[in-house]
Amino acid sequence: MKKLKADAIAGLLCMALGAFFLIMTATNHQLSFIATTSDGVPGGGFFPYILSVLIIIMGGALVVRGLRQADKQYVQWTPENKKNLKIMFLTVAGIVVFLIAWKITAPYFGNNAFMACVFLLEIYLNKLFERSWKFTLIYAVVFTLFIYLVFNLGFSILFNA
């Protein structure tokens, strides 16, 4: 990812964030720049208006700077890096699936669903990081047991999402 793209894209994202908040503020009649109750005193929209405009301006400055600095790179792409990126995406995907599975199964199976999801996530992550099956299974069992003993029994937290 060349800095040219990265800074320009980051700047554009900042501008989009600022524009989003600006539009949301402008379209909400309750968020006025000046309060209607006292003279000259800022209203609920004062900070959002100023901040979103400033973010748009500075995001623009970042885009311009990104376009000027074309020679630098954030990440030197190597085969190892690309593999790392894949593993990172798979880690994030695993956590997303874990959260969805927990949310869906919790109403039916309560806290047990969470414990089962933790166990499966630990197996998935350990295998993703190329650990042996023996290590993976021992780790998953011990860690799930630890969560159960400390949080369920110790702190009486029920993970009924």
Partner: peptide
């Protein structure tokens, strides 16, 4: 490090929920 990563991922979920 992977041993630590596996634990941190779940502990973050547990901590945020708790």
């Amino acid at each position: 490090q992977p041993t630590v990563w596996c634990a941190v991922c779940v502990l973050c979920v547990v901590g945020a929920y708790a």
